[in-house]
């Protein structure tokens, strides 16, 4: 009897460990515990809210990236695409004197257009997504610098200061928009026809085509959506800073990819959840934030972030191996 209870208990623990979302929470907790030991007042709302609020910028881009990786491709343009979209938005406000809503729409439209370009090249011209999106990354960066002439562009005319400074529940509106996006994406991936198609194409594209799916269109939509998410991240940047600068968003695509990897999105495509991605973002951002408040040397920060991410990915693969062994 006792034995049985014990094995039941370890079963539950194993199941918890095998759950991908909970698997990612473990390193987050470890990072938090270590930080608390070194800086006892870490576990206060001030720091926690600051982490949560700060994670939305990279988070929005990561949500788009995860769609692309799920479809079996890669998007290296999310960072610069967001930057360009932000610049367009700022230009619309300061130069063309448009009101808020058209500015936001222009921003999203720019992201979608870049996504469409990516999708068209990859799906219809058959180019590799690595090369295509690397190229569009350069194009976006070049355009952003050219349009802005290298100087920050203010969005003072939009009067968004109040919106940005508001603290609903001690967080920010952008944070709640981000949460809403996560939930919407989760519904899209797990509940809708498109979500099934996307995962099917990512899992085995040839088989999906054989089943009568239009893989080209499915991937094209993923690229456009990723462009929109990238634009949202650029929009957040612009709103937050009250201005946009072509130097924003550099290297964000790689951070987004790392967050996806940590968040349990299979690099081979076809698997993952948006909550996992959100937790991956949280882990990445927590880590970065903790190292900063602990006053770790900036260069050493990079080393530590790299090491800890590799460790969490190792843990994830071990978890999958365990899972596979249980499944056979």
């Amino acid at each position: 009897m006792n034995e049985k209870q014990k094995s039941n208990k370890s079963d539950i623990l194993l199941k918890l460990f095998l759950n991908p979302e909970i698997g990612i929470m473990i390193p987050i907790l470890i990072v938090c515990v270590i930080t608390t030991m070194l800086k006892p007042n870490f576990l206060t709302w001030k720091y926690i809210s600051s982490i949560l609020v700060g994670s939305v910028f990279i988070g929005a881009a990561t949500l788009g990236e995860c769609l692309i990786i799920m479809s079996g491709e890669i998007d290296l343009s999310v960072g610069m695409n967001g930057c360009l979209a932000g610049i367009v938005m700022a230009m619309a406000a300061s130069e063309w004197h448009l009101p808020l809503i058209p500015c936001l729409l222009l921003c999203l439209l720019t992201g979608a257009a870049v996504g469409l370009l990516n999708g068209f090249c990859v799906c219809h011209l058959g180019l590799s997504s690595w090369i295509t999106t690397l190229a569009t990354q350069f194009i976006c960066q070049g355009l952003a610098v050219t349009i802005s002439q290298g100087a920050p562009i203010s969005i003072m005319s939009l009067n968004t200061g109040e919106f940005v400074r508001a603290k609903p529940l001690g967080l920010s509106w952008m944070f709640f928009i981000f949460i809403a996006l996560i939930i919407l994406l989760d519904i899209l991936i797990r509940r809708t026809r498109y979500g099934y198609y996307l995962r099917s194409v990512g899992g085995n594209q040839d088989a999906s085509v054989m089943a009568g799916l239009n893989a080209k269109r499915i991937k094209l939509i993923a690229f456009v959506l990723a462009g929109v998410f990238a634009a949202v991240s650029g929009m957040f940047d612009t709103l937050n800073a009250g201005a946009m600068n072509a130097a924003f968003g550099g290297g964000r695509e790689f951070r987004a990819i790392i967050c996806c990897a940590v968040g349990g999105i299979s690099m081979a495509g076809g698997a993952g959840s948006s909550f996992g991605v959100a937790l991956g973002v949280l882990l990445f951002h927590t880590l970065w934030y903790c190292l900063r408040i602990l006053d770790v040397n900036t260069n050493l920060q990079l080393v530590l972030i790299g090491l800890i991410l590799v460790m969490s990915v190792i843990m994830d693969t071990q978890r999958k191996r365990l899972e596979a062994r249980k499944m056979v």
């Binding site: 099934y196 995962r199 099917s200 899992g203 085995n204 088989a207 999906s208 085509v209 299979s266």
Partner: peptide, 13 residues
């Protein structure tokens, strides 16, 4: 193998 199935998925999907 190539055109057959999505091997990550279960039978029903």
């Amino acid at each position: 193998k190539r055109y057959g199935l999505n091997f990550r998925w279960d039978i029903q999907k």
